[in-house]
């Protein structure tokens, strides 16, 4: 069902990932929810450890790339005793269609969650057609 929707194609591009990064850190793919509302497509990504200053969102042609830099945890005079996660940077790219109004894309970060709102371009918005009688 959702596959039929064209607004946001599911294909993930390697995009800028093909190039090598200058920071020698591990890069993780943030877990992301994407949902569609009447006027927009909303992308919600879990990126613990990032704030509004360390997130970059770029839109090049039709590839939306989100990157987040995380400062590694280091504590003076402490050694790690148990670990379940490794902190690293985040990167993920999505292909978006032309039906998104590029000028009005909005993004916010709160408590390590990135929210990007991609408003649909005017002609794509569903119009209700009233049927005239007579």
């Amino acid at each position: 069902m959702a596959d039929e929707k064209k607004e946001l194609q599911r294909k993930e591009t390697r995009g800028s990932v093909e190039t090598e990064r200058t920071r020698n850190r591990r890069v993780y793919v943030p877990k992301t929810d994407i949902y569609e509302t009447k006027d927009a497509i909303v992308l919600v990504a879990d990126m613990p450890g990032v704030d509004e200053k360390s997130v970059d969102i770029t839109l090049e042609k039709n590839v939306l790339t989100i990157t987040g830099a995380v400062e590694p945890d280091t504590y003076k005079d402490h050694s790690i005793a148990y670990y379940e996660y490794d902190s690293g940077d985040y990167q993920r790219a999505f292909t978006i269609s032309d039906e998104v109004d590029r000028e009005k894309i909005e993004a916010s970060v709160s408590q390590g969650v990135l929210r990007v709102t991609l408003p649909k371009a005017e002609p794509v918005k569903a119009k209700k057609i009233s049927i005239k009688t007579g």
């Binding site: 599911r10 992301t32 949902y35």
Partner: peptide, 8 residues
């Protein structure tokens, strides 16, 4: 509103 992708 519908989900396209739900990973979280």
């Amino acid at each position: 509103e519908t989900y396209h992708r739900q990973e979280r």
